[in-house]
Computed example of a mutant assay.
Amino acid sequence: MFTIYAFDEVSSTNDVLKQQYHIYQDHSVILAHKQTKGRGRFDRVWESQEDLTFSILLKNNYPNELIAPLSVVFALKQYGIQTSVKWPNDILIHGKKLCGILIESIYEGNEKVATVIGIGINLSKKDNLLTKADYVSLPKEELLQKILIQYDQLMMAKSSFLLSSISQYSYLSGRSILLDGIIWKVDGIEEHGYLRVHHQDTIRLLKSEEITLEAIYEKE
């Protein structure tokens, strides 16, 4: 069961929980109606006002990273909206970015004490991002509740179900990517969120925090 704390404006919902995790209990959710310094991977700035931006704090159970994107995909599916997961942290609609996810760990010394899962979904048109982003017009609070219900249910799911589901909705599966000047064929997503790729006889398991995809090629 999640407890939601709503704020009119914060710099970043992830930062609120990272800075004050000792105050909030396990399964706390920070919801911001306006986020002024939201971040994506590699500290890319993502500001929002009309969109759905929230973060989840988990202290006692560190979930499989596949749960966050699948909870969004399954929640949107209830509205008849079909999306795909672009590894590692984007949800796409019509090939354009609809949602971004940022998962961060909190440590005390060498001990991991909490995980923060930040999710931002475009619910409004972005004139300056027309070619790269898309949006859906949905009720913010209702969508949040649907995502949290899905998240709660998926935390109890077997890893085999998570893997088969992410494979079904993976945008990259069957495509090729450019990495370090080499074109790699994407085989799929492995347990714990690794991307499995191969080039000739060489196989690599990629961690999301280690690489940036230089280019993505259409399926052959």
Rank of each mutant, 00 (worst) to 15 (best):
S55T: 04
V186W: 01
S137R: 07
E214Q: 15
F54S: 02
I106N: 10
L123K: 03
V197Q: 04
Q49E: 15
V45D: 00
E218V: 07
W46G: 03
L70I: 02
T3N: 08
M1W: 01
E65I: 12
D152V: 00
E220G: 10
I56L: 03
L58G: 00
C99G: 09
W87L: 01
T212V: 14
Y79A: 07
L76N: 08
K207P: 00
D187K: 05
G38C: 05
V113T: 13
L102E: 02
C99T: 15
V136M: 12
D180A: 10
Y135F: 13
G188P: 08
S105A: 12
S137L: 09
G118A: 07
E104T: 10
L98H: 02
Y151D: 02
P63N: 03
I189V: 14
E218I: 04
E141V: 11
I177N: 00
Y169V: 15
L129S: 06
I91R: 05
L52V: 09
G188S: 12
Q153A: 12
E50D: 14
V116I: 08
F2H: 10
N122M: 03
N64W: 02
W184D: 03
E47L: 07
S55C: 10
G188I: 11
I216L: 09
R204T: 00
E9T: 15
Y217F: 15
Y24C: 11
K96G: 12
T36R: 03
L129Y: 09
G118M: 08
K158Y: 03
I147L: 07
Y151T: 04
L102W: 05
K146H: 08
G120S: 07
I30P: 03
S84I: 09
G40D: 02
H192E: 08
F161G: 03
E220Q: 07
L138Y: 01
K97L: 09
S176Y: 08
E142I: 13
I106F: 07
W184H: 05
R175P: 11
A32E: 08
K140Q: 14
Y135R: 06
K77Y: 05
L195S: 01
K146C: 06
I91W: 13
F2E: 12
G188F: 11
L66I: 13
L17G: 05
S159V: 12
G40S: 02
H33V: 01
D127M: 01
K37E: 07
A157V: 08
A114L: 12
G95W: 12
S160M: 05
L130N: 02
S208T: 01
S167C: 11
Y79S: 12
N61M: 09
I81A: 08
L205E: 01
S12N: 06
K59T: 10
V113C: 11
R204Y: 09
S124D: 13
K96P: 09
I103H: 04
N14S: 14
G109P: 11
I93T: 07
S105K: 15
F54L: 07
Y5K: 14
A6R: 15
S28W: 04
G181T: 04
E104I: 03
D187T: 05
G188N: 03
P88A: 15
T202G: 01
S208H: 02
V116Q: 00
S159N: 15
I91H: 13
L31K: 05
D134P: 00
S55F: 01
I91C: 06
S71T: 04
L130H: 02
V72D: 00
Q82K: 14
K140R: 15
M155A: 04
V116K: 00
Y217M: 13
F161Q: 07
G120L: 03
V72E: 00
E218N: 10
H192Y: 05
T115F: 00
